[in-house]
Amino acid sequence: MNKGHISLSHGGGGVETQQLIQQLFYAHFDNELLRQAEDAAVFEANGALAFTTDSFTVSPIFFKGGDIGKLAVAGTVNDLAMMAAKPLYLSCAFMIEEGLPFQSLERIVSSMALELKKTGAKVVCGDTKVVPKGAVDQLFINTSGIGELMSDQIRPSAQGLQPGDVILVSGDIGRHGAVILAERETLQLQAPIESDCNSVWPAVAALLAAGIPLHALRDATRGGLAAVLNEWAQASAVSIDVQEAKLPISESVQGICELLGFEAFDFANEGTFVLSVPAEVADEALAILHQFAFCKNAAMIGEVLEFQPYPKGTTGLVILTSPWGAQRVLEPPQGELLPRIC
């Protein structure tokens, strides 16, 4: 097989396509269901299932702490985990721009296989399209996933927040967004940071095993923490009071924010999630999270209060309390993130 570049013939359905499937995808994603090589994967399932899909485009496709492939697996697996569902099966569709170096694709597929090992989820069906130069930017990936709900009692939901809950985050916030921004703008950081891109199911599984009542779970992807908290406050009709001083933010992320006029709570995360749990189990939940290396900076950042009517036509409210007690509304991010002028 020619290992130079992906050409249109690799998507033509003929010999080259078969070679690509056999030598690359089967080699890395190998499992019995995939090897059935039928028009659809057939499998047995028990009880309630969760089903989700996501498409991934990121520039650059390789970044510190990950790549588009790792992102495509972690993103979908995390969406399942946020419903307290154990990730089982994934589909995977590649849209490849002709001319992509074969080595790049191989590196991405191999990184996907490595990420799948963290949860035991399997890619059981897939698709490959190659499109003419310029039709996509290098590579787009879509993954869908099916997961098995692990508990009848614990069903986290955006509508599940209750006054008396506290809000936890599983790690320091804003790293993925900051890394992508720094790489696009070639900012040199004194203390380099890596994207938080990661599959978080093991941590969620541990929380479920300990019987922590998870009222709400959400991975804080695009829109960051600010978007998640605003969606929750409105869905559950509550107020959320966030203590600014308790937000875990790495020095480098804070530095990028200071430099360009951004807020870490508006930046995307790809392996950091937000939890709403009853105050009385907060310490136990944090202790469990801290056992995982990727959750070592997990922290309690705020509390859920009864919603106070606020003259703005909203049904929920997120408040940011400064270290000196001044309070302001924490709005969801809007529009493009543009750097400030001076």
């Binding site: 009071d241 209060l305 302001r328």
Partner: peptide, 13 residues
């Protein structure tokens, strides 16, 4: 936007 004075908080974190 400034937040209207919050009621006394249920519990201090």
């Amino acid at each position: 936007a400034n937040v209207p004075k919050m009621p006394s908080r249920a519990q201090e974190i």
